[in-house]
């Protein structure tokens, strides 16, 4: 092949351009600290990086959700533990009250204490959380309202039999939120509330109320009136309310433990995801630096070579 001036120039310039381009790309990676500045820098890595980012951001949100959820559940647990103590105290009172040695005045005192315990339960159930009542359920209002001889929870008279509301409040913690019509699938979320109606009970059994507050009211009334005809039946209601409370407490504990596990798992996932993100998106500064230096050297060599190659011709040698 005949080599002309243009051939030499073109070959030289093409190579110089390529070296400069490689150096510029490496410089961009160094100054941005990122391997990926555009999807086309590495399509498959970019695809993974986008997915990892999605997952990371979501898991951060879920962890925040779990923290808030645990705060709510702990508030409920504290109240329910106190309520447990109240019921235990009430049960020992009832054992005491049943004894025939008590005269009317003692029974009145016992009745007053029962009244007091009943009020305490109402207070515990109506306790205010950070921004709303702890047992607000989904209507957002103070749950228990005492009327003249009536008790209503979430606006429902407890003496009427109410099926406990099924729609609680649910929080998404990344279990794969799913819906069944208008209702959220319970297996795909975690419930954040505890229903006072479920624990305290509702409806009547042969003229005996099921609701714990109503039971306390009836018991107190019986003691005051010195009429213990319904005493046994009412005491049983206290026991079954106690059972329901223990179930609720166990449920709360189980939810909390589950959340702890989930949290741990997510934190480990997050570590792995962050590591992956670094690998995919961040520049490995040491190796990039070495590459950058070698590219710079190549570039300088081609520049030096240029000053030698380009002007050289026969004219440098003929007189």
């Amino acid at each position: 092949m005949r080599i002309t001036q243009k051939n030499i120039q073109r070959a030289y310039l093409n190579n110089l351009h390529r070296n400069m381009k490689q150096l510029a790309t490496s410089n961009e990676r160094m100054s941005s600290g990122r391997r990926l500045n555009r999807v086309s820098d590495n399509v498959s890595d970019a695809q993974r990086a986008l997915t990892v980012r999605d997952k990371l951001q979501r898991s951060e949100q879920y962890l925040r959700n779990i923290d808030k959820l645990q705060l709510d559940l702990n508030g409920q647990e504290t109240s329910l533990m106190q309520m447990n103590e109240i019921i235990v105290r009430a049960q020992s009172l009832l054992v005491n009250a049943k004894s025939d040695t008590n005269g009317p005045s003692e029974r009145t005192i016992l009745a007053k204490e029962l009244d007091y315990l009943g009020e305490s339960i109402v207070q515990l159930m109506n306790v205010q959380g950070v921004d709303r009542p702890v047992f607000a359920g989904i209507d957002g209002k103070t749950p228990i309202v005492l009327g003249d001889g009536t008790v209503s929870i979430h606006g429902l008279n407890v003496d009427a039999l109410v099926t406990p509301e099924i729609t609680g409040q649910y929080i998404d913690i990344g279990l794969g939120l799913q819906f069944n019509g208008a209702n959220v699938k319970e297996s795909s979320v975690v419930r954040s509330d505890t229903s006072p109606l479920e624990i305290l009970g509702s409806g009547m059994d042969n003229g005996t109320p099921n609701n714990l507050i109503r039971v306390f009211q009836e018991l107190s009334k019986g003691l005051k009136d010195n009429d213990l005809s319904n005493f046994e039946a009412l005491s049983k209601k206290v026991s079954s309310a106690h059972d329901r409370l223990l179930v609720s407490l166990t449920d709360l504990g189980a939810r909390n433990a589950y959340l702890d596990n989930t949290k741990n798992r997510m934190e480990i996932d997050q570590l792995q995801l962050t590591e992956m993100q670094n690998k995919l998106e961040a520049v490995d500064i040491e190796s990039e630096l070495i590459q950058n230096k070698s590219l710079e050297l190549t570039w300088q060599v081609s520049l030096q070579l240029g000053s030698k190659v380009l002007p050289m011709s026969i004219f440098d040698f003929i007189r």
Partner: peptide
């Protein structure tokens, strides 16, 4: 409007936006 804490519409929206 009634100050309800029913968050189902919000969860449904999250499900739509993410699903």
């Amino acid at each position: 409007e009634n100050g309800s804490l029913d968050n189902r519409p919000i969860l449904a929206l999250i499900e739509k936006l993410e699903g």
